[in-house]
Amino acid sequence: MLAKHYRSFKQDLDQRGIIFSFSGYMSEEILYSLGNALRQKMTIEDADVTTVKKVFSVFVEQAQNIIRYSADRLAGHVGKSVELSSGMVTIGTEADRFFIVCANVVLAGDVPRLRERLERLRGMDRDAIKAYYKEQLREAPEEQSRGATIGLIEIARRASEPIEFDFEPIDDDLFFFCMKVSI
C-alpha cells in the first residue's frame, strides 16, 4: 500500500513533466544544491548554455523571493540564529518548454503591490522590460523590498512568455501566491 501510494504520487509528478519539486522550508543551502542538480541535469541532456542559464536564473530569483518574502516562516536559535521560509518550487517541461513554478504564502496587505508589479511587467514587451531593468538597476532599493522589483524584472526578462500568476485567499490575513514562468 505504501509503495503503491507513493508510486502513484511520483507518477502524477512525472506525468506533469516535473523534473523536481520542492515543498517545505527553503534555505540558501537548498537553493544551491537544487540549482546545481538542475544545471547538471539540463547540461547532460544537451540543453544549450543560454537556456540552462535562463532556467537557473529564474529558479534562483524565485527561491530567493521565497526565502526573503514568504509569510510562512520560522525563526529560532540552533547554535546560531536561523530563519526558515516555507514555500514551493517546481521545475518541469511541457510542450518543449521548461517551466518554473513557485508558490508561497504572502500577507494580504502585500498583495496589491505585488499584483501591480506583476501586471505592469505583463503589459511590457521585451524592449520595455530591458529598459525597465536598467532603470531599476540605477535606482536605490525601495524600502522593505530588499530588491524584489529587480528580481521580478530579471524573471520577466528571461521568460519566453508573459509571467502567469494568481492569488488565492487563505483567510483574512493571508493569501497563497503562485507564479509560473515558461522558458
Binding site: 542559464k53 534562483v60 530569483e61 530567493q64 538597476l137 540605477r138 530588491g147 529587480i150 530579471e154
Partner: peptide
C-alpha cells in the same frame, strides 16, 4: 559566469 539580480545592482554601482 552568473550573478543574481541583487549582485547585478552591486555591479552597476561599481561601474558608476
Amino acid at each position: 559566469t552568473y550573478f543574481n539580480s541583487s549582485s547585478a545592482k552591486a555591479l552597476m554601482n561599481m561601474f558608476q
